[in-house]
């Protein structure tokens, strides 16, 4: 049931988004299956770069604060040490603090719409957050310092160590869920989760135009299409009215008329109304059928060949 519902939704997303995002199903403790979209490597890199930039800004502010306090020559060493200590603290607490305080989001992740979640569907525990962020030191800062020290110790052992560490850093490239070593150790994963808004129900008439359905359709006419086409039509009807969307809708309207054998001409001003009424009737018919166990996934009447169930 769930897979079937998710499959139309995914097919329509693919049609409109052009990209197939990898999805995973996690199960909440109540047993509700929730489908989550996995963050792409690019999104994660982008979020990480934002965080690094922000950390750099914080560290610069620390410099600006601390250096004037220890301006004289004798004190500058103390100032520098203090800064180095604070940098260490910032570097190690930045990610942990934000992921705990903001439900798995750092500022960079928040901007990119990403979140850290427990891969097994339970609570995101503080220890998981600490674990995934301690490992960051080895994944990112260690290769960085190895690169920096390669000049004076370009030995075979140094190169081998660098190769190994780079392989760990490149781990997200080699697994399906784009997990890095920290995610493996913490049992977490990063998902893409934009906020969605609830739009009006298209089966109801618009509040400003109180009117009855003008166009009515027969069972035969409604049995041509399935759930997939219905949701494509929904997406088109929800697009804001402008010249482009009107042209697309007229094309769709013409196609539907041929397909269902609607003889009368639909005047250009009536296209939206015709399609809205068709949408409402079609949805009524399909939902009624679904209640009685008759599912019609698309116009071919067969289930989609692509495997969606995990």
């Amino acid at each position: 049931m769930t897979d079937r519902a998710a499959s139309h939704v995914d097919r329509v997303s693919e049609l409109f988004g052009g990209m197939k995002r990898k999805r995973r199903v996690i199960e909440s403790p109540e047993g509700v299956a929730l489908s989550v979209g996995i963050a792409t490597r690019g999104e994660r890199l982008y979020a990480f770069l934002i965080d690094i930039a922000l950390m750099t800004v914080i560290i610069f502010c620390l410099y600006a604060l601390v250096i004037p306090l220890f301006f004289s020559r004798a004190d500058i060493q103390i100032g520098m040490t203090l800064i180095l200590f604070l940098v260490f603290i910032v570097r190690n607490l930045y990610f942990t603090h934000f992921e705990l305080a903001w439900q798995g989001r750092t500022p960079g992740k928040r901007i990119c719409g990403l979140r850290v979640i427990n891969r097994y569907g339970g609570e995101l525990s503080p220890s998981a957050v600490i674990a995934r962020n301690l490992t960051r030191e080895v994944e990112f800062f260690l290769p960085l310092s190895l690169f920096a020290s390669l000049g004076d110790a370009g030995t075979a052992a140094g190169l081998a160590a660098l190769g190994w560490v780079l392989a760990i850093a490149a781990l997200p490239l080699f697994n399906r869920d784009n997990l890095r070593a920290g995610d493996l150790i913490g049992g977490t994963m990063v998902i893409w989760m934009p906020r969605r808004a609830l739009s009006g129900d298209l089966s109801l008439p618009a509040p400003d135009a109180a009117r009855e359905a003008v166009y009515s359709f027969t069972r035969e006419q409604l049995s041509v299409y399935g759930a997939f086409e219905l949701q494509v039509l929904e997406e088109l009807l929800r697009s804001p009215p402008n010249r482009d969307s009107d042209r697309v809708l007229s094309g769709v309207c013409a196609k539907i008329r041929i397909k269902i054998g609607w003889a009368d001409e639909v005047p250009p001003g009536e296209v939206r109304r015709f399609l809205s009424d068709f949408y409402a009737s079609e949805r009524d018919d399909l939902e009624r059928g679904q209640l009685f166990g008759r599912h019609r996934p698309d116009k071919t009447g067969t289930t989609p060949s692509r495997e969606t169930a995990e």
């Binding site: 509700v32 439900q103 798995g104």
Partner: peptide, 28 residues
């Protein structure tokens, strides 16, 4: 909704809302 509704926007919204609420309820 997954069983009785074919309103794509509604299902996507509820999936998103449930997931967001889940992450708050089971968040740190």
């Amino acid at each position: 909704a997954r069983n009785i509704a074919l309103d794509r926007n509604l299902i996507l919204y509820l999936e998103n809302l449930t997931l967001r609420a889940y992450l708050v309820v089971y968040g740190p």
